[in-house]
Amino acid sequence: MLPKKVKKRASLLTIFLLLSVIGVFLILNALNKNILYFNSPTDIKISQDINYNKKMRVGGMVKKNTLNINDQEIRFIITDFKNEVEVSFKGTIPNLFAEGKGVVAEGKLQDKKFFIAERILAKHDENYMPPELKNIMKENAE
């Protein structure tokens, strides 16, 4: 059997860890909204208290065939496949920004359907493969 002292220290540490896990969990739960790096179009649609003067981020996929680039601005639609937000942006975009790929736009919401971005970030997925393989996959899909 373990000596009494060891048992005492073990139970002390267990209680300490249990309490701190609960504490951290509560803190994270309380901060939940702030930890999110961006909101999805659905989050915006259901949200009741939107501050239109505060900077925020919207993230999702660039909807296919909606990217429209002209001299003055870049326009596209961010979708999470349930709801959509239209985005207008002036400035440079990252290399990885493309239709059908992930995107995070930072700026101000005008209304629930229209967003003026000040900065565009590309969000890529966790798939890595050589380009030849991607081409083969594309051909197979077609």
Partner: peptide, 19 residues
């Protein structure tokens, strides 16, 4: 949470999404 960082490519269980 929604993050800018992409999810893990190599999973302890299941197949990894890296060639």
């Amino acid at each position: 949470w929604s993050t800018l960082h992409q999810p893990a490519s190599i999973k302890i269980t299941g197949s990894s999404s890296i060639h």
